[in-house]
Design a binder for these strands. Sequence first.
DNA 1: CGCCGCGATGTCAGTTGCTGACATCGGAGA
DNA 2: TCTCCGATGTCAGCAACTGACATCGCGGCG
Lengths: 186, 186
Amino acid sequence: MGRWEPDARGRLQRAALDLYVERGFDETTVQDIADRVGVTERTFFRYFADKREVLFDGSERLVNGVVDGVKNATDAMPLTRVVSAFAGMGEFFDERKSWSAQRARVVTATPGLMERELLKLSTMGVAIAAVLEEQGVDAHEAALAADLGVAVFHRAFQRWVVDESATFSACVRATSDELQAAVRKA
Amino acid sequence: MGRWEPDARGRLQRAALDLYVERGFDETTVQDIADRVGVTERTFFRYFADKREVLFDGSERLVNGVVDGVKNATDAMPLTRVVSAFAGMGEFFDERKSWSAQRARVVTATPGLMERELLKLSTMGVAIAAVLEEQGVDAHEAALAADLGVAVFHRAFQRWVVDESATFSACVRATSDELQAAVRKA
DNA sequence: CGCCGCGATGTCAGTTGCTGACATCGGAGA
DNA sequence: TCTCCGATGTCAGCAACTGACATCGCGGCG
């Protein structure tokens, strides 16, 4: 056994989510989280840039997955490629649905966390737009398609979290269909 | 003359934007802003909930304007009503274009401010969705139409800020057309 | 005319998020 | 066995924010 308990990062993440659920984000100090794990406040900040980031650890993998999905998509239309890429992340989400639901409740209940979530989504949109541009899509069109794809993802996610039995990709497809309907009617 | 210079709020807003532009948001302390205006740090926080909010003062009027616009819109399709409502805010934006451009530069350069901006947009989306629901639109459809409208607004705004001579409503209409194209092709 | 209360601001002490600089020490490898 | 490394601890400090209470011109009221 090493000098300290292993996986401080993972333990901090779990303790943080637990505490945020138990007593709320604002009512939880970083000191509380560190104490529960048995490390120092300073150690928390070595692993996570701030008190919010501890809930956004998977986000990089999500972005990578979606970006790859867009790169490999074959459909002719940019928006379709983006939506397919999100639908392709079904496993990623379905595997940790109960964790996602718990996390989502805390995030939506806390403006500060919602801000960070929206920034991550926006950043993902920029990354997706960059891929589309690489693929020869006009900049305006790429940015719009990326933002629309992200909007579809966001709504689909809400739906998926609320509906206990739904599959993630099914939610994406359903939302995408609604998008078609909403726009074609206009 | 009163006991203090009048319009402390307005002076704080101007000083804050100036300083954020001059030396950057993170490099500006609330103390700096207060000093420049000749008041106390405490007074700043009496007017603005935090260091960011000082740049988001017009946002309530924007939301009210758009909500009213949606309420009064006559078009049959929800998304069209939302887009029209945004287009109807042309004056609101065109009047203070140089201020908007200056502010936009600071916001996009500062993640913390971007977060707040995105939260405001999201909140506006929720408000718009509520109006659509009042008008009898199904909840899913309302939320989606609202988010799409906000996405169009956001892209249109980017365009408008960059293009020195563009009119705001023209940008909204152009972006809306791109949305049609992007989705219909799919 | 003088007193009274209100409202905008000041003062002050305190908590929390976050950072930089330096110390510690068990374990892996030379 | 010695040495260096990397994960953590320690400590001092700044800046964002908050609550409680003090101040004092000004407008109204007696």
